[in-house]
Amino acid sequence: MTNEEKIAMLEDVLELDGGTLKPETELSSIEEYDSMAKLSLIVMMDDEFGKKLTGEQIFKFKTVKDILDFME
C-alpha cells in the first residue's frame, strides 16, 4: 500500500476532505483527531492491518507520519 493510499484511508476514518493530510501534519493541529477518531484508528489497524494498537501507543503519535509508519 502506498503512502497516498494510507493517507486516503486515514482521511476517510477521520472524516476529512481528501488532500487535507500530509505526512508532516501534526496530529494536535487536527480538530477531528479526538477520542472517537483514536478509537476508529484502533479498529482500522485491527481490521485492515491486523495490528493491535494500544492506548499507550496512540498517545506517542505526534504526526501523520507516525501513524503511516505504524501501518507498515
Binding site: S35, K38, L39, I42, T54, G55, E56, I58
Partner: peptide, 9 residues
C-alpha cells in the same frame, strides 16, 4: 477504556 484515560467522558 484505556484509550480514553483522563478524558471528560
Amino acid at each position: 477504556t484505556d484509550y480514553r484515560d483522563g478524558t471528560d467522558e
